[in-house]
């Protein structure tokens, strides 16, 4: 199968800043790829390179089998058949919602354009809002129009540049579901840029984690969360404990006991343990060198319990909001499933 998007050794510098450094990946049609990373990691630049809004210094980009960027050839953005949703939506304020959508359908007969824009409005659930101007729409509605506009011309790929960053938390959640539904429904290949790991994990089919212009890891959400390729990726994707240990083959010996490894290793390592991997039992009849509760952060739906391990390390565990755990209580702990360890 021809990949929907493929990047081959892409480099891009701005002045002395290496914005994108040797990035390569390819994704299947119909995939929702999320580019994730802290600000300045090069994810937006990567998106803009795909869009053709930036020119790579070297490397090749092809979209649906067509080379759009290479040493010999550069296809102008208007000729790449892409849809894009901008961070600020970039709705044209002097056009109505419907006219904004129709703008993308340049060249088609009027009747067809109108039908298509109605269809798109229906898709995003705003059938009755076609005659409104952007400033008469709420943030979420503007967002939907921007998406409808990007999808209207049935582009080969849709690009979304941090589209939810201007929305409040509740709306963001709602829109996330909505966008996911719409993209699924249209079967569109999409590239979505965000710095929010929760958004990335919940939305993406594939997640590409970037850092300092380099692609760190690309894979399914479960993969990147549970089996990050390095400490930095692990820390970026969620709360993480790193515990000292000695690995030998498929097992590692550490302050939490002997744990199975996803990837066999040998020698001194740091073991990644996610807080929710740990199960706690309060226990009054424990040896004096058992872990002790040092601190509790209470969130309502759950809580983070910080333990002092006998070796002097500390460990965060997530538990439901039970009341039997108190600061100073000694506990018994149990780690679920295999873990991953990084060499030191």
């Amino acid at each position: 199968m021809t990949p929907a998007i493929s990047l081959h050794h892409i480099h891009k510098t701005f002045g002395s800043v290496q914005a994108v450094n040797d990035v390569s990946f390819s994704i299947e049609p119909g995939t929702l790829l999320v580019l994730l990373g802290a600000s300045g990691c090069g994810k937006t630049t990567t998106l803009r390179l795909i869009a053709g809004l930036e020119t790579p210094d070297s490397g090749e980009i092809s979209i649906n089998g067509v080379t759009v960027s290479s040493r010999e050839r550069f296809v102008q953005p208007e000729d790449r058949r892409l849809g894009m949703v901008f961070q600020d939506y970039a709705l044209f304020p002097h056009l109505t919602a419907a006219a904004n959508i129709e703008f993308a359908l340049n060249g088609a007969p009027v009747r067809e354009r109108q039908a298509r824009s109605q269809e798109m409005l229906a898709l995003v659930g705003l059938e009755s809002m076609g005659n409104r101007y952007p400033h008469q729409l709420s943030g979420g509605e503007q967002q939907r129009i921007a998406l409808a506009r990007a999808l209207a011309a049935s582009p080969g790929v849709v690009l979304l540049d941090e589209p939810f960053s201007n929305l409040d938390a509740a709306l963001r959640k709602e829109m996330r579901e909505e966008v996911r539904r719409i993209l699924r429904q249209t079967g569109m290949t999409a590239v979505f840029v965000t710095h929010d790991q929760e958004e990335a994990l919940s939305l993406g089919d594939q997640i590409a984690v970037m850092r300092g212009g380099k692609l760190q890891q690309i894979g399914a959400p479960q993969d990147v969360y549970l089996r990050p390729v390095n400490r930095e990726v692990a820390a970026f994707l969620g709360e993480a404990n790193f515990v000292q240990g000695i690995a030998s083959g498929g097992q590692v010996e550490c302050a939490l006991g002997r744990l199975p490894l996803w990837v066999p290793r040998n020698g001194p390592v740091e073991v990644l343990v996610r807080p929710e991997q740990i199960k706690l039992e309060a226990s009054t009849s424990q040896p004096a060198n058992a872990p002790c509760i040092e601190h509790i952060r209470y969130f309502g739906h759950d809580q983070i319990v910080t333990l002092a391990l006998p070796g002097g390390e500390s460990l965060d565990c997530r538990t439901w909001a039970r009341l039997d755990l108190k600061v100073g209580t000694p506990v018994k702990l149990d780690v679920h499933g295999p873990v991953i360890a990084y060499g030191k």
């Binding site: 869009a51 809004l53 102008q76 953005p77 208007e78 000729d79 892409l82 849809g83 894009m84 901008f86 961070q87 600020d88 970039a90 044209f92 703008f103 993308a104 340049n106 060249g107 506009r149 990007a150 011309a153 690009l159």
Partner: peptide, 21 residues
């Protein structure tokens, strides 16, 4: 930049983008 870029993503050349948007 984004308005201009958005227009180009929708298939407008620089010239068209200037006059239409």
């Amino acid at each position: 930049a984004t308005t201009f870029e958005a227009a180009r993503m929708m298939g407008c050349s620089r010239r068209e983008a200037f006059f239409r948007l």
